[in-house]
């Protein structure tokens, strides 16, 4: 359902993605793992076009867009693809001047022009889904990190995206708080939400991901089912990296 073909991203002289090709099937959860600076976040941001790839082709559902160096795509084209996605950020990035439920309603009301009442109903249902209905009228500043991230997940889901992108959704949270986020994402995965997530959190990846892509220095080193990659990695490099994640997991889960 999502297909990246030869996605390349350069920032000046620095090439962050060196021709990444991967696909994500509908209803599957793919975890991008790999060392910091390896291109996970950039790859994720190339899917919703917060970064415009330098070259390559991006396909989400029926929508496709090709990139050529130096030719920025039209805004309409960007919006066409971006509307297929929802994004959860490492630092939540809730709108601090809007209450929890207003955060979730924002895309529906402002972008999709839903009537206020209908948007409120859908937002409330989504807050219930992430276990935050009791804080619907709270300001983000009064919520814990885990609560903020759950509201952010509801906000990302509000416009019914085809794919939920999660950029290190648990790494700003302590193990206990990240637990509640993992649980919510796990439930979404069980319901068949298509997801792509960049993560260092082994608990998150192993609990939720069907597929894992190991990315280093802008290239896919190894990709496969979570089961295969975590238990029998083919490459030495993958093996070593997963070993470090496991060690961290023993010292205190997550990073």
């Amino acid at each position: 359902m999502i297909r990246l073909t030869n996605i390349e991203k350069r920032f000046g002289d620095l090439t962050v993605l060196k021709g990444v090709t991967l696909s994500v099937a509908e209803g599957r959860v793919t975890a991008l793992i790999g060392p910091s600076g390896g291109g996970k976040s950039t790859l994720l941001r190339c899917i919703n076009l917060l970064e415009i790839p330098t070259a390559g082709t991006l396909r989400i559902g029926q929508e496709e867009l090709s990139f050529r160096d130096g030719v920025p795509p039209a805004w309409r084209e960007i919006q066409r693809l971006r509307r297929q996605t929802g994004m959860v950020f490492q630092n939540f990035q809730l709108f601090p001047h809007r209450t929890a439920i207003e955060n979730v309603m924002e895309g529906l009301v402002t972008v999709q022009k839903w009537p206020h009442e209908r948007a409120r109903e859908r937002a409330f249902a989504l807050l219930q889904k992430v276990g935050m209905a009791h804080k619907a009228d709270a300001w983000p500043a009064t919520l814990s990190g885990g609560q903020q991230q759950r509201v952010a997940i509801a906000r990302a889901l509000a416009p019914s995206p085809r794919v939920l992108l999660c950029d290190e959704p648990t790494s700003a949270l302590d193990p206990e708080l990240s637990g509640e986020v993992v649980e919510v994402l796990g439930r979404l995965a069980d319901e068949g939400t298509t997801m792509v997530m960049a993560t260092h959190d082994l608990r998150l990846a192993s609990r939720i991901a069907h597929d894992v892509v190991f990315l280093e220095a802008g290239q896919v080193v190894e990709a496969g089912s979570a089961q295969a990659l975590f238990t029998q990695p083919k490459h030495d490099r993958t093996k070593r990296f997963i070993a470090t994640l496991t060690q961290q997991g023993q010292h205190g889960e997550g990073v």
Binding site: R82, F89, N91, Q93, F95, A156
Partner: peptide
């Protein structure tokens, strides 16, 4: 990140500026 959050829910520049 606030711009990015606004864009990520589909807002255009105007909407992000005005609302966020």
């Amino acid at each position: 990140g606030q711009w990015e959050a606004a864009y990520s829910i589909g807002m255009n520049w105007n909407q992000a500026m005005r609302r966020t």
